[in-house]
């Protein structure tokens, strides 16, 4: 099942790349269809996992990554449906595919089912956080595309990418939309996380490294959004910030699990 999902995501990556190069609508439709198929399979995978263990499968690093990849695919499909920014597929599809390859290489350890995992607050916390992080991943992708396109225009030798990428304005405003959506979702995720922590450990905040880093990430995006609204930070600087922001997200997600310990660490297998 995981293999089939990877095949779908991988084929979707190929289709999107072909679309970027050849600009044929058929490739784009194939890309969307394959990614949707991959997402469908993935969803079934996660739901059956939930059914078997009685809670969302997010208690090992492997499951968590897989859940994250699913969110990237899902959020991208939603975003694409709404904004029709087709080329972004060359970022989202391979991201989902690569993550799933890593997942398939990790040993499937089953952590003992902990009673604290059975809570709706946890489901909300995890779902919001991951959808938020998927949005921020898209914002990062848009930031990269922005920088590529800007370089093409600035170099005064517009070539391959100039023709195929959308206008700077479009990339910039789409990136902003993703950041706003991601920020709102992340805020909701953190809030539900706090409530959940209170229910399980009796306190909202316990200076767990992951909590600290999440706070830092949240602040970073808060500043970025504020600067844009107040000072008109946009274009190149906003694009770079979107990339830096997502790097922080990745560190909070992966780095903290690998290098620091805390009560989130218990879920990372």
């Amino acid at each position: 099942m995981i293999l089939l999902t990877i095949v779908c995501y991988g084929a979707s990556t190929a289709a999107y790349t072909a679309f970027l190069v050849r600009q044929k609508k058929t490739f784009y439709h194939a890309g969307v269809a394959l990614l949707s198929a991959g997402f469908g399979l993935h969803l079934i995978l996660v739901l059956t996992g939930t059914f078997h263990s009685g809670h969302l499968p997010v208690n090992t690093m492997r499951d968590t990554l897989s859940f994250g990849a699913m969110c990237v695919a899902g959020v991208f499909l939603l975003f694409q449906y709404r904004y029709r920014l087709k080329v972004l597929g060359v970022f989202a599809a391979p991201l989902a595919a690569a993550t799933m390859v890593i997942v398939s290489l990790m040993p499937a350890t089953s952590a003992p089912a902990q009673p604290i995992l059975k809570s709706l607050w946890l489901v909300a916390h995890v779902t919001f956080i991951f959808m938020g992080e998927a949005s921020l991943a898209l914002a990062c992708g848009l930031g990269i595309l922005y920088l590529v396109q800007e370089k093409a225009i600035k170099s005064r030798k517009p070539g391959f990418f100039f023709r195929r990428l959308p206008s700077l304005d479009r990339l910039d405003s789409a990136g902003q939309t993703c950041i706003l959506a991601g920020f709102v979702l992340m805020t909701l995720g953190l809030a539900t996380g706090l409530v959940y922590a209170k229910a399980v450990w009796g306190r909202f905040w316990s200076w767990d490294p992951k909590e600290v880093w999440s706070g830092i990430t949240w602040m970073l995006y808060a500043v970025l959004i504020h600067e844009r609204l107040a000072l008109g930070w946009r274009g190149r600087r906003a694009a770079i910030m979107a990339i830096v922001g997502f790097a922080t997200v990745l560190f909070t997600f992966l780095g903290v699990n690998l290098f620091m310990s805390g009560h989130h660490g218990a879920f990372s297998g």
Binding site: I153, R163, S167, L168, D169
Partner: peptide, 24 residues
Amino acid sequence: TGIGDHAVSISYAAIELARKIFGE
């Protein structure tokens, strides 16, 4: 073939560039 897709006059090329920067 996309034969008419890209500008071949100076003034049109300028407009095409503007559209890549500003969108609409």
